[in-house]
């Protein structure tokens, strides 16, 4: 198989696509946002429970390709327990990773399992698939005034 292809569709990615983690609607939650890529029709919804600036819990739902779904799944597993400030930095590093931008070894290491998505950088048309969940997460975090849904 084409090595670029193997790099893009690594086993971890296929595993998270077929069996996405934290894939549910979370009630109650403190933050929520919907992301949509109008170009391809991919949709993702992020639910957060933020306490004392820490992401206590996170879940997602949506419709998308293997890259977008596995990226969302990996992201939820990764950010649980991290602070809001951490997550903003994580996003910057992740973005650099999938865009083929500058990233220090230390930052790459910090991203852990997320590094499996690095193969996306060879596919410029697919970068948006990998980053949709992250953009939505950031939007959810910023949406501080959203009412807490408890019912």
């Amino acid at each position: 198989m084409n090595p670029e292809l193997r790099e893009l569709y690594q086993q971890v990615i296929l595993d998270h696509y077929k069996d996405p983690r934290n894939y549910k609607v979370m009630e109650p939650h403190t933050h929520h946002a919907e992301g949509h890529n109008p170009l391809c029709g991919d949709q993702v919804e992020i639910f957060l429970k933020v306490e004392d600036n820490v992401i206590k819990d996170i879940s997602f739902q949506g419709n998308g390709c293997a890259i977008s779904k596995s990226s969302a799944s990996l992201m939820t597993a990764f950010v649980k327990g991290r602070t809001v400030e951490d997550v903003q930095k994580d996003f910057d590093h992740f973005h650099a990773l999938v865009m083929g931008g500058e990233i220090s070894d230390e930052d790459r290491e910090q991203l852990g399992k997320l590094a499996v998505l690095e193969g996306v950088k060879e596919f410029p048309m697919r970068v948006k698939c990998a980053s949709l969940a992250w953009h939505t997460l950031i939007a959810a975090i910023k949406n501080e005034h959203e009412k807490v849904i408890t019912e």
Binding site: N2, E4, L5, L8, Y9, K18, L39, C40, G41, D42, G64, C65, A66, I67, K69, F123, M125, R126, C129
Partner: peptide
């Protein structure tokens, strides 16, 4: 079955086959 059209499109592209995927 079980495969999103965008993934189909990307893999076909690497085989030299250009198709359209999306809405």
């Amino acid at each position: 079955e079980g495969i999103h059209p965008h993934d189909t499109g990307t893999i076909l592209d690497l085989e030299g086959v250009a198709i359209r995927t999306g809405h």
